[in-house]
Design a protein around this nucleic acid. Sequence first.
DNA 1: CAGTGGATGCTCT
DNA 2: GAGCATCCACTGT
Length: 190
Amino acid sequence: MPDALSATFFARSVHEVAPDLIGVTLLVDGVGGRIVEVEAYDPTDPASHAFRGQTARNAAMFGPPGHAYVYRSYGVHWCLNLVCEEEGTAAAVLLRALEPTQGLDRMRARRKLDEARLLAAGPGRLCEALGVTGEHDGLPLDRPPFALLTRTSDPEIVAAPRIGITRAVDRPWRYGLKGSRYLSRALPRA
DNA sequence: CAGTGGATGCTCT
DNA sequence: GAGCATCCACTGT
């Protein structure tokens, strides 16, 4: 049985935390799995929601690390970020995909879909499968409904450009578990 | 397969 | 009024 992530895990540079999250298990009310794909958004990043300063929407990004930042995407989907670094710095990791390991039946019911490969392959799909909504915005990650469990082995990680953005498109701040079939999109061949 | 466009709501200009 | 850190259905090969 893996341990919970340490309290200081998120109080580091988002560029260290993001790859370290690959292989970590995320559960929301006991439903979830291994994180296989993330993206880092740092404080000086033109693609970050926080780039132009604090607003009502992105307030959680400016709060303490180890909390959730949840926003609505394209008016339709929710996206879940984990806040990093220090209070006031506004850095976060977007969770893009995970490999379902627990609560598959609940995910299938929420997604109205059978195929495990597609249950949480994409930030919007991940939130739908885990039941994450705007009500989770700002909540701490070390208490229910959230649980984060350390990885048990060192995964092989591939870095690549981020997906779905129009600015700072060249920064290779997307991280994926090499060979995983649960990614939102294939990683570039190394 | 690849490419296109609609849904849909909120934030910021 | 524009622009999304998306997803799905539908078209055409």
